[in-house]
Write a protein that binds this DNA or RNA. Structure first.
Lengths: 116, 116
DNA sequence: TTAAGACATAGATGAGTGTAAATATTTAGG
DNA sequence: CCTAAATATTTACACTCATCTATGTCTTAA
């Protein structure tokens, strides 16, 4: 149970990019989230997980979608997880990832300023 | 007058991240936009420009906000401009940048899926 | 206990990136 | 013209990053 606000949440509700200048520390908190998303493989991973049935996907479902080695996919998943964009759950031999749609929505609200 | 759709616009209208898996080429088109935003300095630059009165800011307004050299700021502005997130207009000795709020909104719609 | 499969970690490497110093370009004034 | 000011470009460098190979850990099944 994590009740702390992510760097995005502390700002997204009332201070989108265009409303007032981001402080240096706010920017340093948000940039890593964007950085995590700013890779073609990770964008596709997020999309694959988020659009997968049940809202979650096993790593075994993901590896086959790329022409990359298994450790590379694992590496990208770790980055997305570390940024708080993916949840991780181990069930038996398999590991399932689930998209943090709240984090995505907050990011979107910050950037676009008009999401709900 | 540029009537072509940006990589984001081709997708944002009906295919947010969570709706269906992003294709490799879509992801490769969108990632550079996120990459451009995924830096604390560039995030603050975007925010400074977007929230500045008149929706635009002179480079002279921006340089002072950072503890960085003028060429470094110029470099970041070039990246944001190259990604299509900032418009550039020279007036006399000064160069004014303006935020492409449409591009930001499209990005937000793609990520969050619910903006309008 | 052994073996096999799913996933993660470690180490190495080549490509990319943020920054500064030096220099160039453009514009307005004298 | 010449100079000064605003901004961009070039070059160089330290650092980060995406990727692979090799290896480790954990879980299930035989």
């Amino acid at each position: 149970m994590n009740l702390e606000l992510t760097p995005v949440q502390t700002v997204a509700c009332c201070s989108p990019l265009s409303r007032e200048p981001l402080s240096a520390s706010e920017a340093e908190g948000i940039a890593p989230l964007l950085k995590a998303l700013a890779d073609p493989v990770r964008l596709r991973l997020m999309s694959l997980v988020a659009s997968h049935e049940g809202g979650e996907a096993c790593v075994c479902d993901l590896n086959g979608a790329f022409d990359l080695s298994q450790p590379t996919i694992s590496h990208h998943l770790k980055i997305l997880h570390g940024a708080g964009l993916l949840e991780r759950e181990k069930r038996g031999v398999w590991v399932y990832y689930r998209a943090r749609t709240d984090a995505l929505a907050n990011l979107a609200a910050l950037i676009g300023g008009q999401s709900r």
